[in-house]
Design a protein around this nucleic acid. Structure first.
Lengths: 336, 336
DNA sequence: ATCCCAACTGAAAACGTTTACAGTAGTCGA
DNA sequence: TCGACTACTGTAAACGTTTTCAGTTGGGAT
C-alpha cells in the first residue's frame, strides 16, 4: 500500500505538501500531487491519522441484541446521522449482560470517540464503568444509577402507559392482566407502574396473580401468557410491556384459541412488523426507533465537537413522544 | 490518558518490558507493571498498535439496510464469530446504492482488515471496486461479475425454489402468480427462473401478466399484489421471492379481502417474524441468516490469518441449505 | 534597485506502540 | 574462579501521519 512518502516522491514535493493539499490548503503543485495520488491509489492510513490526531471518527454502539428489529432500527438511526459527519459506527451486542458489555467497551473504547449504549443493567456499577471511559456517552432507553451524568434519550413511557390504560378503561374494562418487563429497567418499571397507577386512580385493583414480570423476551411473554391462560383471573384486557413479550404472548393465546378481541382485548407497548396483519391487528403504543437513533447521534456528535473546550454544555435529556396506534385488538369487554 | 511511558516510569522499567508483559512474555517486574497499569488505568492505544502492526482487528460489514431483520440477523451472526477472535465489526448500510457502498468502503477500508458485504449491484464495477481494496472480501447472498474472485456464502436458492414449486404442484395447482425481486441479483434471478423452470417441466406456463418483477421491498410487494388483484389472472397460488415483498403482498391481499388459503395459496422465500401468527400462518422457504453470518465470518477470519503467507487457500463457495416450512397458507386449489 | 510581505515550502518532531538488536545479570558446571 | 549459557532488559528504529518552525520564493510598492 502506497504511503504519503511515495506520493511525495512521485510528485516531487515533500510529504508536508501532500498532507496540506489533502487537508484542503493551497499548494502550488496540487495538480501533480493529485495525479500521483491517483496513480498510486493512495489513501491515507487511518491508524496513523488516528494516532496523530487522537481522533478516530467512530462511535461505539452497544445494544442488547442487534438482531432485535427495534435495536436494528435504532442502530440505523444512529448510523444515518453519524455518516453525515463522516463518522462510522462500531456495533456490538451485549446480550443483556453487564460482563459482556464491559468487556466489549474495554476493547472498543480506544478505537472510538464516543459511546451510544442501551445498558444491560441500570445499576451503579454500569454508571461507574461508563464514567471511567472518559468519553462522551449517551444512554438510550434506560438509565444507570441515580444521577447518571450522561446525556439521555428515551421515549415517553409514562404517557404511553397512561394512554394505554385510559384507552382500555374507556372501553369499559374492569379486570386486567399485565405482562411487564424487568423492573430494574426504566421502561419496565415506568410502564408497569404508570399503567397500574392509572387503573388505581380509576379505582381498579389488579390482583397479583394477574401480573407477570420477567425478561423482555419473546420466551418470557409466551410463558407468562400461558400461565395467565392456565390460571384464569377473569381478565378482559391484557397489557404487555413491549413487543417481543407481546409476540410471545400472542403465540400462546393463539395456540390456546383465545379470540382477540372477542374474549380478550390485547394492547402492547412498541409497534412491530406486521402487527397490522395478525388475525386481530394489534393495537400498540408505538415509538420512533429511528428518531431515537437520530437524537442519540446528534447529542454525541455535539459532545465530540466540544471535546477539549473549556465550557461544557449541560447534560441533555431528550424524551421522544409515543403514540397510541389503534387497530382491532381491543374492544369493549364481553358482557357476561 | 496514560500511555506506556507513564506505566514504565511508574513501574521503574522500560517501555519494552511493559509491552512485553502485555504480550504475555515473561518479565521479572510483572507485578509492579500490573500495579502501575491498574493505578493509571492504562489501556494500550489502538491506533498506535494498528499503525505499528498494520492490523486493526476489525471487519467492515456492509449490508443494504441494517434495519431489515434478515440483515440484522446476518450481522449478529458475523458479530458472534468475530468477537470470539477479538475482532470488532463496523457496520454500514448501503441502501442498495453502489455509490453509497463504494464511498463507505473508501472511508472504512483503511480501518479494517477485511470486508463482508451484501453487494448492492452484481455488476463488474462492484467486482473491480472490491478487488481494488486489496483485502479479504466475502460476498454474502449475491455475487459480482462473472468470476468474482472472492469467497462466497449464500443459501441454496435453486433447491428452495424447486421445493416451493414442487409443493404447490403436489397440491394440484395449475395456475400461478409470481412476484420476484430484481433479476440482476442472484437470489432474484435464481429463485425466479428455477420456480418457472420447475413449472415448465411439469408442462405449466405462467402468463406474463401473472409475473411481477421489481425491488426487494415491502412497497413493491404491495403494489405488485395490488396489480394482480386488479387484473385477475385466475391464479390459485402465489409465489413471492422474499419476505419483505411477501409482507407487502399480504398487506394488499388482506386489504382486498382475499382469503388465504381459501381463494389463494401463498408461499414465499425467507421466513419472517410472526409468519406463524398471521390469519393464515404463512408457509415459507426459510433460511439460516445467523448461520450465514457465521460462515462468512469464519471465511474472513481464516483469510486474515493467512495474510502475508505465500500459499493462498483456494476460494470457497459455501452454500447453506434452506428448508420448506409448511404452515397453513397453502392448500389444494378451490375446485370451480 | 531595494525592501517587505504574502504565500508557500520542507525538515523534523511528535503521536504510542512493537520489536530487532545489543547488552547485562544470574546460574550452573567445571 | 572462571566461562558459557540462559533469561531477561533497555535503546532505538519503525509504522504513517500532522503540524510547528524556520526558511525560501516572487511580486508589488517604494
Amino acid at each position: 500500500m502506497a504511503n504519503i512518502h511515495d506520493v511525495a516522491k512521485l510528485a516531487g514535493v515533500s510529504i508536508a505538501s501532500v498532507s496540506r493539499m489533502l487537508a484542503g490548503e493551497n499548494v502550488r503543485s496540487a495538480e501533480a500531487i493529485r495525479r500521483a495520488i491517483k496513480d498510486l491509489g493512495y489513501r491515507p492510513n487511518a491508524s496513523a491519522r488516528g494516532l496523530r490526531l487522537g481522533k478516530h471518527h467512530s462511535i461505539a454502539v452497544i445494544v442488547p441484541d442487534i438482531s432485535n428489529p427495534y435495536f436494528a432500527a435504532l442502530v440505523r438511526g444512529i448510523e444515518e446521522r453519524a455518516m453525515t459527519q463522516g463518522f462510522r459506527i462500531i456495533v456490538a451486542s451485549s446480550d443483556e449482560q453487564f460482563s459482556a458489555e464491559s468487556e466489549l467497551l474495554g476493547n472498543l473504547i480506544d478505537a472510538v470517540d464516543a459511546v451510544a449504549i442501551v445498558p444491560a443493567e441500570e445499576g451503579d456499577r454500569t454508571r461507574r464503568m461508563l464514567a471511567d471511559l472518559n468519553k462522551p456517552v449517551v444512554l438510550i432507553d434506560r438509565t444507570v444509577g441515580d444521577e447518571p451524568g450522561f446525556d439521555l434519550v428515551h421515549v415517553d413511557n409514562a404517557s404511553g402507559a397512561k394512554a394505554a390504560a385510559d384507552y382500555l378503561l374507556s372501553l369499559g374494562h374492569q379486570s386486567f392482566g399485565i405482562i411487564s418487563g424487568r423492573q430494574d429497567t426504566v421502561p419496565g418499571r415506568v410502564r408497569h407502574r404508570v399503567f397500574l397507577k392509572t387503573l388505581a386512580d380509576a379505582g381498579i385493583h389488579v390482583p397479583a396473580e394477574a401480573i407477570k414480570i420477567g425478561e423482555f423476551s419473546r420466551d418470557f411473554g409466551r410463558r407468562a401468557a400461558q400461565e395467565l391462560i392456565d390460571n384464569p383471573t377473569g381478565m378482559t384486557a391484557l397489557f404487555v410491556g413491549n413487543n417481543t413479550m407481546a409476540q410471545g404472548a400472542l403465540l400462546s393465546l393463539h395456540a390456546a384459541g383465545v379470540s382477540i378481541p372477542g374474549q380478550l382485548s390485547f394492547l402492547c407497548f412498541d409497534d412491530f412488523d406486521l402487527a397490522e396483519l395478525l388475525q386481530a391487528p394489534v393495537t400498540v403504543i408505538s415509538r420512533p426507533a429511528i428518531a431515537e437513533g437520530h437524537a442519540a447521534a446528534d447529542l454525541l456528535l455535539q459532545r465530540i465537537e466540544q471535546i477539549g473546550s473549556p465550557t461544557q454544555l449541560p447534560l441533555e435529556h431528550k424524551v421522544l413522544p409515543v403514540s397510541l396506534t389503534i387497530r382491532q385488538s381491543c374492544s369493549a369487554p364481553a358482557s357476561d
